[in-house]
Amino acid sequence: MTWNTYDGGSNAYDGEGFEPAMDPVSGGDLFDPTDLTGTPDPVEWTDFLDPHDGAEIDHGDAPALVGAADLPNYVSAHSDPHAVVGDPGGAMGVWHQHTGEGGCAIGAQGMVLEYLTGERVSEEQLTAEAAARGWFDGAGTSPDAVGNLLELHGVRVDHTEGASLAQLQEVLSRGDAAIVGLDADEIWAPGHDLADDTVGDLPGIPGQDANHAVWVTGFDHSDPARPMVVLNDSGHPDGQGLMVPLDEFMDAWQDSGNLLVTAERPEA
């Protein structure tokens, strides 16, 4: 099982355990859902269709995530500090976009490591450490190995499957860090219908599986009618403090079985 990353030129899904899904916006032919006899071809980001005019989008040399303008970035001055859980503003200071294919879990761990300990370790070193120990296969990190790099560098880690929203918010409220698995398509694609997961209903196709790992840095309840989840997403070009509506986040998170990897802040 491997995690997906946003990459303007490479296969979006390239690894064991995750199958490409139909474009949730246009219903474009990422694969033929009536063909249940074989493995769908890897998805190219150029296969995504523009939700406005239906034209094929070429991300080419200058990746521009579809709908990025619909996903704002956290600004502390625009939020009620009493309505914010976690430290999304402080966490933004250690965000960086990963460069290696399938490196979202490595990127998330690297950011968390720097945030909790002040230790900045390069993506190249973390990738080499993970590969040498069988935690990274060149395409991605298995869910049960997320957090191993943090433990290697002295951070205590706990894995929880089937975690609740209350558990996630409790992790952040006490100053620890949270990495989750989710379906990136459900937070990156504009206009995704949360009730429309038809691919997952087809026999033989696990259409709702998670394909990405991110660091959840906070919750912003400044607008009670529209609570937001704040992410440091190393796979998104604008992933520094990326704000995602809570309902969309919950739908994407449940595709990983609500996997929560808690990294504890070391005691002073």
Rank of each mutant, 00 (worst) to 15 (best):
M1K: 15
T2E: 08
N4K: 15
T5M: 13
S10Y: 01
S10W: 01
A12G: 13
D14P: 01
G15D: 03
G17L: 01
F18M: 15
F18K: 12
E19L: 15
M22L: 14
V25S: 12
G27R: 09
F31Y: 14
D32K: 05
T34Q: 08
T39H: 15
P40G: 06
E44M: 02
E44F: 04
T46S: 13
D47G: 00
D53W: 09
G54L: 11
G54D: 13
G54V: 08
A55G: 11
E56F: 12
D61E: 10
L65I: 02
V66H: 07
L71M: 06
L71S: 12
N73T: 14
H78M: 08
H82F: 14
A83L: 06
V84S: 01
V85C: 14
G86P: 04
D87F: 05
G100H: 12
G103E: 00
G107V: 00
A108S: 04
Q109T: 07
G110T: 00
M111I: 07
V112P: 01
V112E: 03
V112M: 03
L113T: 07
Y115G: 02
L116G: 02
T117S: 03
R120C: 02
R120I: 05
E124Y: 04
E124D: 10
A128T: 05
A131L: 05
A132T: 06
F136V: 07
D137W: 06
A139R: 15
S142C: 15
A145P: 15
A145S: 12
V146P: 13
G147W: 14
G147P: 12
G154C: 03
V155M: 14
S164D: 00
S164Y: 02
A166S: 05
Q167H: 08
L168I: 06
Q169Y: 08
V171D: 05
L172V: 00
L172W: 03
R174D: 01
D176M: 10
A177F: 06
A178R: 15
D193L: 15
L194H: 06
P206V: 08
H212Y: 15
F219Y: 12
F219K: 03
M228N: 04
N232Q: 06
G235T: 00
H236G: 03
P237D: 01
P237W: 07
G241K: 01
P245C: 03
L246Y: 00
D255L: 00
S256R: 06
S256F: 00
N258H: 14
T262Y: 02
E267C: 05
